[in-house]
Nucleic acid binder design. Structure first.
Lengths: 234, 234
DNA sequence: TGTACATCAGTGAACGCGCGTTCACTGATGTAC
DNA sequence: TGTACATCAGTGAACGCGCGTTCACTGATGTAC
């Protein structure tokens, strides 16, 4: 079943990879809103109309960048968890660190995924949802494993869910075949947004200038607090 | 000391207010990166060069929008806390709800403040920092009052701070004249970013389509969890 | 192996559009005597 | 109150620039016989 790729196909793949690389560079230097096919073509040393041999439109290129970024982030998280120890808290912290490290290394692509939506662009759900849910699926997996192993202490406070939220969470339990109780899944969603809030504040500079000399220390503390919110047993 | 404003001054103020209003509209419809002085001029029914009588450059207009947005958000929070009951947890939840409500009502302006930084634009610290810190100052005020009133239970877990973070927090204690212990201030910073993470996920659509039928219920739950992180006594 | 044809990457011109900013100007409004 | 002058909002042309997308084309590479 090994496809033999002709020289022409190989050249096409190389050019396509170059287009993506140059688009990522543009994203970093000028932002998603200013991503321009003409500029990509110029960087590639090609006439502007030629990029249409590779990409149908500017929006399609944006979608490719979104999917690629979600995939790279997902890969980074998967790699971090690959040889992870079994303790749930440790696994959660490894996941969180991987997200933060990727975001700091790739601020523009992180911003494309988790910042202000690009005006006038709507990611086609069919192509982006699967890649976009990899991190939260991993997070839920960690929670699920801990729950099934009996490593989660039910929190004494706030375990009850309002009816609408209970229904939403029930739908997630079915869709992802989860065994964890609703209150835990709901807390997982809250921890998910809190994790990305911490990363976004740091990457987008929201803490303000000169507030934190080493943001990683606050991040570590916050992640431990979030892990405690999930009731992970040491 | 009442300044008498001449008709000309009044007209100038009205025009300036119109420019801001139209700029806000453009922000909402096309995003910060696409904010254009020419388009503002056209909407105002004026020749493009005329806006330079009111605003020195596109960047200055962006700065005005940033400062105005921070101010409006700060006002919304202040209003919510004005007649607030004294219990710290309740005050925290009121603050959080005010942030969320403002963000949902003004997603474009929220994105300008808390989303991807506008490429090529750097807000001048002198003009934006004071307005930009109003919410966190309020949050710290709530924490401070609770601490001073003895309404905070020291958390049994994770109270120790790493050295760098301890120094950062000490600087904040001095600058804002805080009495609360370092671990509490650090947790306050974590709660701050978590709050905005929850709001950003909702406003930017990060929970994904069809995940939550009523995001406010998850928000309420998450805020109660965050309040518990601060050790507020019921 | 050689030839005829098909595929396809890249060209170059054009479409209609928008941008920030400068500059000399007009003409109405405001001010000082 | 009337006049001369200063202030200032708004004009219109221009600068040099960039954008996405279409279209007929050239010429090299690949394929079928």
């Amino acid at each position: 079943m090994q496809e033999i790729r002709s020289p022409r196909e190989l050249a096409r793949e190389r050019t396509m990879a170059e287009i993506m690389r140059l688009a990522r560079e543009q994203l970093a230097s000028h932002g998603a809103a200013a991503l321009s096919l003409r500029a990509v073509a110029k960087d590639l040393g090609i006439v502007s109309s030629a990029v249409y041999r590779y990409v149908a439109s500017r929006d399609e290129l944006l979608t490719l960048l979104v999917v690629e970024a979600y995939s790279d982030l997902g890969d980074a998280v998967d790699t971090a968890l690959k040889r992870a120890p079994l303790a749930a808290e440790k696994r959660f912290v490894l996941l969180a660190r991987a997200v933060r490290a990727w975001a700091i290394a790739e601020p523009a692509r992180y911003g494309l995924l988790f910042g202000t939506p690009v005006p006038g662009y709507h990611a086609p759900a069919g192509q982006t949802v699967e890649a976009g849910t990899r991190v939260v699926v991993r997070l839920m997996g960690i929670i699920e494993d801990a729950w099934n192993a009996g490593d989660i202490t039910a929190s004494p406070t706030v375990p009850s869910l309002s009816p609408g939220l209970a229904a939403d969470v029930e739908a997630l339990r079915t869709e992802y075949d989860l065994n964890s109780p609703g209150w835990l899944i709901a807390r997982g969603l809250g921890v998910w947004s809190a994790l990305f809030g911490a990363v976004s504040f740091e990457v987008f500079g929201q803490y303000g200038p000169n507030t934190l000399s080493d943001a990683s220390e606050l991040f570590e503390l916050s992640m431990r607090v979030l892990a405690a919110n999930l009731g992970f047993r040491g």
